[in-house]
């Protein structure tokens, strides 16, 4: 077993915390020592949010890591992926949801949102693998825009050698029972994008 450091980032309200809870839970099930840390602040009000999750074969101390120490980033928004890029190892993987949520400063013309090409180029210049995923499109296909987090979790699950069942169990644990079915479908849809069924 190899240690894995995750960073999950996005915009408040996108469901990043549930995603990080799932990643943490899966690590525990897979036999790792696990710690995680969320920075919520005013998160539900559309600010930047960030969670660290650490899987480690041995006992862990800090629940977060610093610059250059993240193996896998799960970014819910392209600008947020870019903002957290220095956390990545050179050998790291960035999974980025392509749904752009321009901050108010961009809408009011005070600041410029970087172009898709610029963001992608900068991500690629820094890490080994970048996987853009259109999770919003998939979520809307399932009829619920809120399940983008689980689409992304589905995709993420294809990058790790952990049984799919652990992931499904964790999804079950952290989504409201009322929305379980659509979330499980979203998980499968994410896996399909990742090339696995």
């Amino acid at each position: 077993m190899k240690a894995v450091n995750f960073l999950i980032c996005g915009v408040g309200g996108q469901g990043t915390v549930v995603a990080s809870d799932i990643v943490a839970e899966v690590g525990l099930k897979a036999g790792y020592h696990v710690k995680k840390s969320d920075v919520l602040g005013l998160a539900v009000r559309g600010g930047s949010v960030i969670s660290h999750v650490r899987w480690n074969p041995e006992e862990l101390h800090a629940p977060m890591v610093g610059n250059g120490e993240v193996d896998i980033m799960l970014a819910f928004e392209p600008l947020e992926a870019l903002r957290r890029l220095n956390f990545m190892k050179d050998t790291g993987i960035v999974v980025v949801n392509t749904q752009k949520i321009p901050p108010i400063s961009v809408n009011t013309g005070k600041e410029e949102y970087p172009s898709d090409e610029d963001i992608l180029a900068r991500l690629k210049s820094r890490v080994k693998h970048v996987y853009p995923v259109d999770a919003l499109k998939k979520a809307l296909e399932m009829g619920n825009s809120k399940v983008i987090n689980i689409v992304l979790i589905g995709f993420l699950s294809t990058l790790l050698h952990v049984e799919a069942n652990y992931w499904k169990e964790a999804v079950r644990k952290f989504v409201a029972p009322k929305y379980l079915e659509v979330n499980l479908k979203a998980f499968e849809a994410g896996r399909e994008i990742g090339g696995m069924k």
Partner: peptide, 9 residues
């Protein structure tokens, strides 16, 4: 990078 301050929903 553009800042992302919290905002009224």
């Amino acid at each position: 990078l553009p800042t992302r301050a919290a905002v009224f929903c």
